[in-house]
């Protein structure tokens, strides 16, 4: 947002800690929201192109690489008993890229009992005894190499994922899809989770930068106060 004197125009400004020049923050709330949605977008809106691109490339790459290392399974929202995905609280910091996970979770646990978006993109893992739609069960059995039609039992109008065995019977299969993912992905599940969590948490700093400009250390703030 190029302007000769943004402070005189009544807009929010910050002082650069490097050369003391004024930084036009535009509308800080808009910039912060944009930066949350897409890392660095708020800085681009403020005309801070280099920083915007730097944050965008760094954080989007970290998030995408993490999701890829985790086999596309590590970003999901789940708040069911038995599977509370605390990591998603950090992953959500990345903004728009994490929103599909919330949509998929709502859709799978809602009335439709199947994800809204196609495939198994950002879908939370199925737990033992969880009902899903007939269409989703058929799709999983056809597409997922770890599942087949035997993993679902009819319970009209739903299909139940690996129902609890009757008393006295033992089901030796993993109790939920998460166990299957861990077994298949090994260390990459944790590495992918770590990458995506860190990208989300670092984006909170980027949002703060868009909101109020560069942070200052305590010593810098003290020196500024004295001068």
């Amino acid at each position: 947002m190029a302007h000769d004197d943004p402070a005189a125009a009544g807009r929010q400004v910050a002082v650069s800690p490097d050369d003391g020049s004024l930084i036009d923050l535009g509308t800080p709330a808009v910039a912060a929201l944009l930066s949350w949605l897409v890392p660095g977008l708020g800085q681009l809106y403020q005309g801070r192109r280099l920083k915007g691109l730097l944050f965008m490339v760094t954080l989007v790459t970290t998030f995408v690489v993490g999701a890829w290392l985790g086999g596309g399974r590590v970003v999901y929202a789940s708040w069911q008993p038995g599977e509370k995905r605390w990591a998603f609280l950090c992953q959500a910091g990345i903004g728009a890229a994490a929103i599909p996970a919330v949509v998929q979770s709502w859709s799978l646990l809602g009335a439709a009992k199947e994800p809204l978006l196609g495939g198994s993109f950002m879908v939370p893992p199925l737990l033992r005894g969880q009902p899903v739609s007939q269409a989703y069960a058929t799709r999983l059995a056809a597409v997922d190499p770890d599942l087949d039609a035997d993993d679902f039992s009819p319970s009209p109008p739903w299909q139940v994922f690996r129902p609890f065995p009757p008393p006295g019977m033992l089901d030796r299969r993993p109790a939920d899809q998460l166990s299957i993912w861990h077994r298949r992905l090994g260390r990459f599940f944790e590495i992918g989770t770590l990458y995506t969590m860190l990208a989300g948490m670092l984006n909170i700093l980027v949002v703060y930068d868009a909101w109020s400009g560069p942070m200052r250390t305590a010593a810098e703030a003290e020196g500024e106060k004295r001068s």
Binding site: P17, K51, F55, T58, L59, L194, Y195, L198, V206
Partner: peptide
């Protein structure tokens, strides 16, 4: 796998403290 994370954190820390 920790190296890229350290680099990413360093770039973001530096970027949010300087202009």
């Amino acid at each position: 796998f920790g190296v890229p994370l350290v680099l990413a954190a360093a770039v973001v820390f530096a970027g949010t403290h300087h202009e």
